[in-house]
């Protein structure tokens, strides 16, 4: 474990010099939140109304949190890197090193994700407090659970993106797969809570990655209860275990394929 922590740490230090670049990216983030605020204010013509069980401010906070998770993950860059590693044969060099490729990718990308996550959280909280003021009925107890759940969400997301990147062992371009995955997360996961979708879609989404990678942490933040907390964390842990297994399965299969083909 210790070596992965070192990979994490040294990458974190290397990334610190890009802090100002990350902060310029806040412009786009602010604009998105701002647009959503205006949109929801328009739709909630009466601010006390509830739609699908959510109030106006909860809807805006929902987007603030899911967008933080989205920007923290930075999936496109990771997917490109993994599939380039596969295509360029870099991955073969990693095979005889004393660490697992997935562990290495995960810990080096986590350092970036956490740095961005922290910066975007600060930006998002400031933006939310300025736009909306303090959250009504905010439960301080929820903070540690939201943090744990967010961390799990980013971890699962990164692992799933690694799985997608590794498909480059078999297909020419893993881009389209990542594209479909990211669209599902964006369209179904960042704009509205799952409750906004009708019947069968809602049921499917409850079992999909959307539930554990975006909906979960955001739900805990805007509408905390111990029941939902328990079910979200359990779902996340199951997803985490499954995605680790899936990633290593795909990796092993892929490497074998590489050996057969002689790299």
């Amino acid at each position: 474990m210790r070596k992965y922590f070192y990979i994490f740490k040294s990458n974190l230090i290397a990334n610190l010099q890009y802090v100002s670049n990350i902060m310029i990216g806040f412009i786009t983030y602010f604009v998105i939140i701002f647009i959503f605020t205006n949109l929801w204010e328009y739709i909630y013509s009466n601010p006390d109304k509830l739609i699908n069980g959510y109030g106006l401010e909860q809807m805006i906070w929902y987007v603030i949190v899911t967008e933080i998770l989205w920007y923290a993950t930075g999936g496109r860059k990771l997917c490109n890197k993994i599939s380039n590693d596969v295509k360029s044969g870099n991955i073969a060099y990693n095979m005889n090193k004393p660490y697992s490729y997935i562990g290495y990718s995960l810990s080096s990308h986590m350092s970036e994700a956490i740095l961005r996550g922290v910066l975007y959280t600060i930006a998002g909280m400031v933006m939310g407090l300025v736009l909306l003021g303090p959250i009504k009925d905010f439960n301080l107890i929820s903070i540690p659970f939201v943090l744990i759940s967010s961390l799990l969400a980013v971890l699962i997301n990164i692992l799933l993106v690694i799985c997608i990147g590794l498909t480059a062992f078999w297909v020419e371009d893993s881009g389209p797969f990542y594209w479909i995955y990211s669209k599902v997360i964006l369209v179904f996961g960042t704009m509205f809570p799952i409750e906004y979708f009708p019947g069968i879609i809602k049921i499917i989404l409850n079992y999909s990655p959307v539930y554990v990678t975006t909906y979960g942490p955001a739900k805990l933040f805007i509408d905390f209860s111990f029941e939902s907390c328990l079910s979200i964390l359990v779902a996340q842990i199951i997803y985490l275990i499954l995605s680790v297994l899936l990633a290593s399965f795909i990796y092993r299969k892929g490497v074998r394929q590489l050996n057969v083909n002689g790299g």
Binding site: I24, I27, T28, I35, N38, Y42
Partner: peptide
């Protein structure tokens, strides 16, 4: 970022802004 602004605003109706 500036170029992104246009894209984001262009995909929402002006009526929601004040």
């Amino acid at each position: 970022n500036g170029n992104n602004l246009i894209v984001h605003f262009a995909t929402y109706p002006d009526g929601i802004f004040k």
